[in-house]
Every structure is written in structure tokens, then in C-alpha cells.
Design a protein around this nucleic acid. Structure first.
Lengths: 203, 203
DNA sequence: ACGGGAGTTAAACGAACGTTTGATATCTAG
DNA sequence: CTAGATATCAAACGTTCGTTTAACTCCCGT
């Protein structure tokens, strides 16, 4: 095995652990997923999780970190610009839904773990939320108040916007049982358009 | 101790377990809450949970059952009536938000556990969802399609409506860290009005 | 008044948990 | 070439998990 192969293999082991964790944490939950189940799925030795991530919780942190930073980047890229409020909102929702779709498993983990008050995790979830709230405030809430007089705080609006975009992915397992195939009858494009329409002109 | 006192005490033990479970499951999650932590909070013996509820999962089921049946009852009472679609929707949102507020801990448990695919739990979450979807379809989606031509399936709309109403409670622990007191700066009445306005005429 | 069922208890069960250790193989740097 | 870092491994660590058992108390129906 060449040196590059060895390093490559290590990187791949790390990556396999991440992928397996994202899948299992989203399907069974973080706490109900055991390390042995995880390493079996990732096809690595039991010790490798602690070797690469320090602890099981460290692994969760890295997953959440990657997801939140991507979500925040989308907010920055689509909202922190000149232009009409409606255009910005439409662009943000479009990109965010695409991002949620491409990372639906990490999204489910993030929302599931969101309300739990593990101090260690909560504190730095708040770190990401703080940045998000600031963007939503400057680019949506303040302009909205200026042009229509409606004052809605970003700490209230950001959760609304995030959860409505996430709703489809959170309910997917249940709705698939309610009506098989229901998670695909509405295209992602129509899903986006529906959310945009609700926010711009109501149902 | 009188007979009524004894029976009363048993009922109270059962009730204390339920209350402690609702609190702990919502704060720490179902799987991360241990039985010993639970019975210490409820001030009962370790065996009592299995005695009253059969298993830890039986306890979770009872909590979810009570929450879902209450939510479904509100949907029936406020939506399955004659009247204008907008009036019905406004009435439903008002009552549902009040219900979520009064049962915010059970709500958090329900949403957190929603995406996980434990077959036993998933199957009967789907049972409740099926009834909910049917009501939303008949009372909202079909009338909406008839009067405005917009076709949005209830398996897509019900999750949207539910999660936007739940958003405030799901994000409360995080938003409280972002801005202390932020979970009370918007009254429940204003929160309701905002959601109603979004759905009826947009932001 | 007494047998039976319901509530409660302390103790123990085996299993599974996350983590650590020490050895081994492989690659890198000097 | 060799010393050290890196990746992998099997095995064991001590805890904690959810559940079960058996004994005990107390109340109720007959």
C-alpha cells in the first residue's frame, strides 16, 4: 500500500464514519445509536470514532457544525445583498430548500437535537443561531418593518421560516406511512414555490 | 391511610411519573433520560414505571397518545364545520397555538421523536397523522383548490402548518440563549396573529 | 376476619453502553 | 536507516442501562 493510499484510506475511514453517523443519527436518533452499530455500518474499528472525533458527542458536533455553517453561508449569500425584499426572500427560500434537500439527514439531526438542553451542545447551537438571527433581522425584519410597519422580531421569524422549509423532511417518514410515495408527489420546485407564495401573498 | 387515599396515592404516583417524564423527555430527549433519573424526579420506586406503563417505551407512547389525540380533537372541533375557509383556518391556528403553549413539553417530545423510524412508534404516529391529514384535506386543501385553483396536498400542507406553529417552542431553548427573554417578547396572541396573517395574506 | 389483588420496595439481572489500553503495522521525516 | 508519528486492531475497562424478581404492606370484597 502506497503512502498516499494509506493516508487516503484514513481520510476515507473518517469520511465513512461521518456518513454512517449522519444516516444512523437521523434515522434512530443520536442517543439511540450505539457505537458498535455505527462502526459496523462504517466498516471501521470501534476505537476509530474516539480516535478521529474524540468522543461520540464530538462526532455529533462536527455534523451539526458542517450543517449550520452551510445554512448560514446560504443566508449570507442570498440575503446580504442589495435588492427587493421579496426577491431576496425568494432567493433565500429556493437555495435553503435545495440545501435542506441535499442534506436532509443532517437537517433532521439538527432539528431533533435542537430543543434538548445539553449545555455543551446548546451553547454553540446558540452561537450559530445568533449569526443567523442577525442576518434575518438586518435583511428581512428591519426592511419589512420599514416598508410595511409590521414589526416581527427575528428570534420569532427565523424559526418560522426554518421550520416551514424543514417540515417536509421532518415528516417524511410518517407521511410515507400515511400515503406511500407522498414524499415525492410534490416536486422540490413546487414545494419551494408554495413556501414562497405563502410568505409573499398567503395561501 | 383510607382506601380512597391509597387509590388516590397510586393515581398520583402514575401521574407524577407522567409529569416527570414529560419534563425530562422534552429537556434531555427520550433516549438520554434514564429510568433512575426519571423515578428520582417523580419520587417513586424504580419498578413503578414498568408496573404502570409496561416499559419505558410504553410511557412514551402514552405521552404521545395524549398529545396527538388532543391536537386531533382541536382540528375536528375547529375545522369540521360550516363556514368560510379563512375563518376556519384562523380558529384552528388560534386553538392549536394555545394547545401547543399549554402542552409545549409534549409538543417538543412529539416533534423530536417524529423523524425516527422505530417501527413500533412510527406505525402508530402514522395512525394519528392519517386522521389529521384527512381533516386537513377535506376542510382546507379541497376547499382551497375549489375556490382558488391551487392544489396543495394535505401530506405537504399539514406538516407546514404544524411546524410553523411549533417553531417558537422548538427553538425556545436556543433563542433564549441568543437573546434572554426573547421567548416572551412576543405574546402568544401576536404569535398567533402573525401566523394567521402569513397564511392569509403573506408576511 | 381473612384471602386476594393492588401498590410499593430493595436487590439483582444480563446486556449494552462509551471509552481506554497496549500491541501492531505502515508511512514520513531527518 | 532509523526514530517517530499515524492508523488500525482486539480486548477489556467500569458504568449504566431497562427490566425482573420476590417479598411485603395495605385495603377491599365476601
Amino acid at each position: 500500500m502506497k503512502k498516499t493510499d494509506k493516508k487516503q484510506h484514513a481520510i476515507e475511514s473518517r469520511e465513512r464514519i461521518l456518513q454512517a453517523a449522519i444516516m444512523l443519527f437521523s434515522r434512530h436518533g443520536f442517543a439511540e445509536t450505539g457505537m458498535r452499530e455505527l462502526v459496523a455500518e462504517a466498516d471501521v474499528n470501534l476505537s476509530m470514532v474516539n480516535y478521529f472525533f474524540g468522543s461520540k458527542k464530538g462526532l455529533l458536533k462536527e455534523i451539526l457544525d458542517a450543517f449550520f455553517s452551510g445554512y448560514l453561508a446560504i443566508a449570507r449569500d442570498t440575503l446580504v445583498t442589495d435588492g427587493d425584499l421579496q426577491v431576496k426572500l425568494e432567493r433565500f427560500i429556493g437555495n435553503a430548500v435545495r440545501y435542506f434537500d441535499a442534506n436532509r439527514e443532517a437537517l433532521v439531526i439538527a432539528i431533533s437535537e435542537l430543543p434538548h438542553d445539553d449545555p455543551e451542545i446548546l451553547e454553540y447551537k446558540a452561537g450559530w443561531a445568533r449569526q443567523m438571527v442577525e442576518i434575518i433581522n438586518h435583511e428581512i425584519c428591519l426592511p419589512l418593518a420599514a416598508e410595511s410597519g409590521r414589526a416581527i422580531p427575528p428570534t420569532c421569524f427565523a424559526p418560522m421560516l426554518t421550520t416551514i422549509m424543514a417540515s417536509r423532511f421532518l415528516f417524511a417518514p410518517v407521511m410515507e406511512k400515511v400515503e406511500a410515495g407522498s414524499s415525492t408527489t410534490v416536486t422540490m420546485g413546487d414545494y419551494t414555490k408554495t413556501i414562497v407564495r405563502i410568505f409573499l401573498q398567503g395561501i
